[in-house]
Design a protein around this nucleic acid. Structure first.
Length: 818
DNA sequence: GCACATCGGTGGCGC
DNA sequence: ACCGATGTGC
């Protein structure tokens, strides 16, 4: 211990002497007092509590620049961890800008996973792996687990492999190796979870592979069992910085705590109010506990917000105030008031979508008493992906350009994954999982039986699947068409593999290491990896499989015609493949590319035409837009019922943080909306369900909210009867919040419908319906009550058929509103 | 082995 | 409603 301190003292003395002579630090003048403190307090544990839009990245990057320019650390002695590659890229770029030079020399600025890959490749043997291990993605992982589940004779119906994958991920997130799984979890997956977990780990080791969870888990295990290795890194990483600390899971937390264990120069940046990944293993407790974990920790609060107007901040603050477990923070801004948060209710999601589109059009032309907005300044954020469909339908219908942020990522698409599997087999011929994927893709008449033969041959000879396939093909174990196709595939793979290296140049006897991990030892390839990729895809017949086979007649007419894609979808897939090949240019070789795709999960952005962005609230984190729409604020959808059922108050609090994230994305205008009716699918109940406005709406502070008047229900103007119907219907909401809203409506000149007192059936009035009574429903018309269950009534409607509806939306036939 | 029908399950999504 | 996994008939 003491030798550490001496060492540190010596180093910092000499370095700060160097720093004294160094230039002034103009970047510090750019900071507010809190940010400045977060930057200048370099030693010891620091928790930077950074609210939304408070200049967190600025503080973090300036801190790195400060560490460097004061000479406290060299670039490669700083460990800076983020969650996403995007965040890592942004940080690199900003540090570079601050320093006035590219931050190339920061090899340890990256995601948890990419840094762990680097470390694990260095120490692979300590985890029973070779340094060229492959990283399995979720699909590979699932396929492997399925095999194990089947081998264990478990009914995959009752005990889906997916479930097992989830359980294992959870254990890995908690840094539990199979032998450490607590007794309380022994019953998992029909009592076989732990055993299968152990088998899975063994299998991974045999395959020289790891999954994402292993990257952290292996490193934590290595650090724990090899103090010498740990000490080496504790000394090397003089300063540690962590972004989005509220999103760390237990394994990441342990990893950090181990590394910071020596000098404790760790600066964690985060916002407990934006912890929204609990379902993925994130422990908001990590950030809440920081001061206990690191005694003497200094906490800096960044509370000045540079993004949103006071109304928006007030709304967000009031909502998040409902959470119990918080470190507590109050955002403020010196921006002018601006618009109040706008609130509006609709009949159903379709009308909600229609209204949003109309509103966007109005905002675009500046007819809302606000400045005109560009489409790319506007975003719609939903709780669940299925909410996107109705929005997209509407956008397509009226031809408004939009983009979905965070859709199916490019490389997760079928054709991309297939192509990548080809590359993997070519680069690592013993990658069995990738081989399995491509052996009969495209179809080579190598079905279940043929593949079993290959598996058996490989096992009998103790070799990889590809080797086994070669042997099986040579020995004629696979007959007919399949056999010929297999031989062709095996030959092709060997040929392409040779091309990854080009002509071999002997430097001297022991510098030629043929482990595939040292391509630099070899001479220039004859073909670039880009050309090679094209060759692989073409010669394997893969691209061909998306081309339309010509009929015999067409062949007669023209023996060498240009092939056309089979259909619209195939055309898209070919486009994607082309894009993939182009994308390869950014990498030095196929290996580099494959490493990248293992770790990268960003979606490509397309062209530059201004578009409205649609995304989930999760995808919205870290983004900001001048105008934000937040539709679907209904209890059950948001907050999500499932989330609340599963984790109770904890779940509700996470939902509330999601609401907070949503509101704080908005810079100028934030519009929240809800629908009264929604089509739902749950269990045996499919159909329309009446929805109550989200409880979060009740938590909006009334002084900062403006209730908008919905347009006519049936497309009419402001005097159409529909509007009254709608308002009357909206009136039934019983929450205090809604009552406040309602009161305010009067204030804004929209009188309460005269009939409302008569037409609206209060929730307490359910009992007043009798079997056989004739009733009216605003959407379904007249009908007769045929059953009553609690607050739901089954009605045989004259036109709409039999439906279960919530009693509140029915009126006795005498009270019809118009 | 492949094309089509049926069944079940269904949240958010990073590396 | 819709996707993916499985089952069925050719």
């Amino acid at each position: 211990m003491s030798s550490f301190d001496e060492n540190d003292a010596f180093e910092s003395a000499s370095l700060s002497a160097r720093a004294m002579a160094a230039r002034p630090m103009p970047y510090l003048d750019d900071l507010n007092p809190a940010q400045r403190e977060a930057v200048e307090r370099l030693d010891g544990p620091v928790l930077m509590l950074a609210g939304a839009g408070t200049g967190k990245t600025k503080a973090l990057t300036t801190r790195i620049a400060h560490l460097l320019s004061t000479g406290r650390a060299r670039p490669n002695e700083i460990l800076a961890v983020t969650f996403t590659n995007k965040a890592a890229r942004e940080m690199k770029e900003r540090v570079g800008r601050l320093l006035g030079q590219p931050a190339e020399g920061m090899p340890w600025l990256g995601t948890f996973h990419s840094i762990c890959v680097k470390l694990l490749r260095r120490h692979a043997e300590l985890a029973g792996l070779k340094s060229n291990f492959t990283i399995l993605d979720t699909d590979d992982q699932l396929r492997l687990l399925k095999q194990l589940v089947q081998a264990a004779n478990i009914d995959d119906k009752r005990w889906p492999a997916r479930m097992l994958a989830g359980i294992i991920d959870d254990w890995k997130n908690r840094a539990l190796t199979p032998d450490k799984v607590p007794a309380a979890d022994a019953g998992a997956y029909n009592n076989k979870g732990v055993d299968l977990y152990a088998q899975y780990q063994t299998r991974l080791r045999e395959l020289n592979a790891v999954d994402f969870g292993d990257l952290l888990l292996h490193m934590v295990t290595i650090f724990r069992t090899h103090p010498d290795v740990l000490e080496q890194y504790q000394r090397w990483f003089r300063y540690i910085l962590v972004d989005e600390y509220q999103d760390t899971n237990i394994a990441q937390y342990l990893w950090l705590r181990l590394l910071a264990g020596g000098h404790k120069n760790i600066c964690c940046v985060g916002d407990d109010d934006q912890s929204i990944y609990g379902w993925r293993g994130a422990e908001v407790g990590n950030i809440l506990r920081f001061e206990k974990d690191f005694p003497g920790a200094h906490v800096v609060r960044l509370e000045q917000n540079y993004r949103s107007t006071p109304h928006i901040l007030a709304a967000a603050s009031n909502v998040i105030r409902g959470n119990e477990s918080r470190l507590g923070k109050e955002l403020w801004t010196d921006k002018p008031e601006g618009e109040k948060v706008r609130l509006i209710g609709h009949w159903d999601a379709e009308e909600e979508a229609r209204w949003i589109c109309e509103e966007i059009d109005a905002m675009r032309s500046g007819t809302r008493g606000m400045r005109p907005f560009e489409l790319n300044e506007i975003a719609i954020m939903v709780r669940a992906t299925h909410q996107m469909k109705v929005l997209e339908d509407r956008f397509l219908k009226i031809g408004m350009p939009y983009r979905v942020i965070g859709g199916v990522p490019f490389y997760r698409r079928l054709e991309i994954r297939d192509a990548i599997a080809y590359f993997r087999v070519v680069v690592s011929p013993d990658n069995d999982l990738a081989f399995e994927r491509i052996v009969n893709t495209p179809k080579r008449s190598l079905g279940e039986k043929a593949q079993q033969t290959i598996q058996r041959t490989a096992r009998d000879h103790g070799v990889s699947l590809l080797q086994g396939a070669r042997i099986a093909a040579e020995q004629g174990l696979i007959k007919g068409k399949g056999g010929a196709a297999l031989r062709e595939l095996v030959d092709g793979l060997a040929r392409w593999n040779a091309m990854t290296r080009g002509p071999r140049i002997e430097i001297d006897d022991d510098s030629v290491i043929d482990n595939g991990a040292e391509p630099a030892r070899y001479g220039d390839p004859e073909v670039s990896h880009i050309e090679l990729a094209q060759i692989i895809l073409d010669e394997s017949g893969y691209t061909e499989s998306y081309l339309k086979p010509l009929s015999d007649e067409e062949l007669k007419l023209d023996p060498s015609p240009p092939r056309r894609p089979r259909d619209h979808e195939a055309a898209g897939r070919l486009e994607n493949l082309k894009e993939l090949v182009n994308h390869l240019g950014e990498f030095e070789n196929l290996q580099g590319f494959l490493e990248h795709v293992s770790l990268v999960m960003d979606n490509e952005q397309d062209n530059d035409e201004p578009k409205v962005s649609i995304m989930t609230l999760h995808a919205a984190k870290g983004l900001e837009f001048p105008a934000v729409f937040l539709p679907g604020w209904e209890d059950g959808l948001f907050p999500s019922q499932r989330s609340m059922d599963e984790t109770g108050l904890k779940g509700l609090e996470e939902e509330r943080r999601l609401a907070y994230v949503g509101i704080t994305r908005a810079e100028e205008v934030c519009t929240i909306s809800f629908a009264s009716n929604r089509l739902i699918f749950s269990g045996d109940f499919k159909g329309w369900q009446s929805m109550l406005p989200s409880r979060f709406i009740d938590e909006l502070p009334e002084d900062h909210v403006e209730v908008l008047t919905p347009p006519g229900l049936y497309g009419g103007g402001h005097s159409a009867p529909g509007i009254e119907t709608h308002a009357a219907q909206a009136n039934v909401y019983n929450s205090p919040g809604w009552k406040r809203m309602q009161a305010r409506q009067g204030q804004y000149g929209m009188s309460q419908p005269r009939e409302s007192r008569n037409t609206v059936i209060d929730a307490t009035a359910v009992a007043s319906f009798a079997l056989g009574e004739r009733v009216f429903h605003q959407k379904f018309g007249y009908g007769e009550v045929i059953a009553i269950e609690g607050d739901k009534v089954e009605v045989a409607f004259e036109k709409a058929g039999t439906k279960k509806v919530v009693a509140r939306f029915l009126s006795a036939k005498d009270d019809v509103p118009f």
